[in-house]
């Protein structure tokens, strides 16, 4: 296992290498031509200056705030729905059997197709983006909770029964923690998808948010603006992911290290 400072140094090195290639390609003429023409690729220094400029104003925080709100709402509502339905289906095999083809159909539907419908129904505000994120998060959490409840170890369950736990107590002390551990194992994925839903929704039609910023820049061939938006979005994802990792560590203390890392 590599030491942490070394790892971070290597990670930063990769960033420098990529930015270096971008810089050379876009700003240093080789045999009289630019390999990465400015019009299509912008330049690292321009993008950097644009980001600095964006953050010197206050509107960028409003956009980040909107995207964050949409992401959190989609995640919370989608997770709640997934947990409730996951439990219900796992405990009632008949319900699960009846709805199985419909769940598969709904899950296979490309969500982008739904975006215009949500806009029609819910308007251009945040709720159409929340709805899009919901359709992504719901299925991830649903399948994980369903699996988690179904795959409770029969021995642990039999033991709990022999220890005198009634149905309600089994739910609280056995099914619920088991399902929760499965849900948290997909926490990174579902938060990521909530964000995808928000940004794609904004991209397709909105008046605010990071996706809207990128779309607006694209509309006027402002490549620098597009790249600046993408960089901010990427940084945003890293921050959200770090927060999720912290929450996960707190909630899954009982997990062996090996499975926590994988």
């Amino acid at each position: 296992m590599i030491a942490r400072p070394q790892l971070i140094a290597l990670q930063i090195l990769v960033a420098f290498a990529l930015i270096g290639i971008w810089y050379v390609g876009s700003s240093v003429p080789i045999f009289g031509t630019y390999f990465l023409p400015k019009f299509f690729f912008s330049t690292p220094q321009d993008v950097f200056m644009r980001i600095v400029k964006m953050f010197s104003g206050t509107t960028i925080w409003k956009h980040i705030g909107i995207t964050l709100t949409e992401t959190m709402l989609a995640f919370v509502i989608g997770s709640l729905g997934g947990v409730v339905f996951g439990f219900w289906f796992a405990r009632k095999p008949l319900v699960a059997a009846v709805f199985e083809p419909y769940i598969k159909m709904a899950n296979a539907l490309p969500r982008v197709v739904l975006a215009p419908i949500f806009m029609l129904w819910l308007g251009l505000g945040i709720w159409s983006k929340v709805a899009l994120g919901f359709t992504l998060v719901f299925f991830i959490v649903f399948f994980n909770v369903y699996q988690g409840v179904k795959e409770v170890s029969p021995v642990v369950l039999a033991n709990a029964r022999m220890l005198g736990l009634n149905e309600r107590q089994l739910f609280r002390h056995v099914y619920w923690p088991s399902a929760l551990s499965w849900m948290f194992s997909s926490l990174h994925t579902s938060v990521g998808f909530a964000l995808v839903g928000a940004v794609v929704g904004e991209y397709l039609g909105a008046a605010a948010g990071l996706g809207y910023l990128i779309h607006e820049a694209e509309g006027v061939f402002d490549v620098t603006g597009v790249f600046a938006g993408m960089v901010i979005l990427a940084a945003f994802v890293l921050v959200v992911d770090a927060v999720v990792t912290q929450i996960e560590k707190r909630l899954l203390v009982w997990r062996p290290e090996a499975t926590q890392k994988s």
């Binding site: 170890s153 021995v155 642990v156 039999a158 033991n159 056995v174 923690p177 009982w254 997990r255």
Partner: peptide, 8 residues
């Protein structure tokens, strides 16, 4: 087999 609740 192991029958303890791993989350407790």
């Amino acid at each position: 087999q192991d029958a303890l609740m791993p989350w407790k």
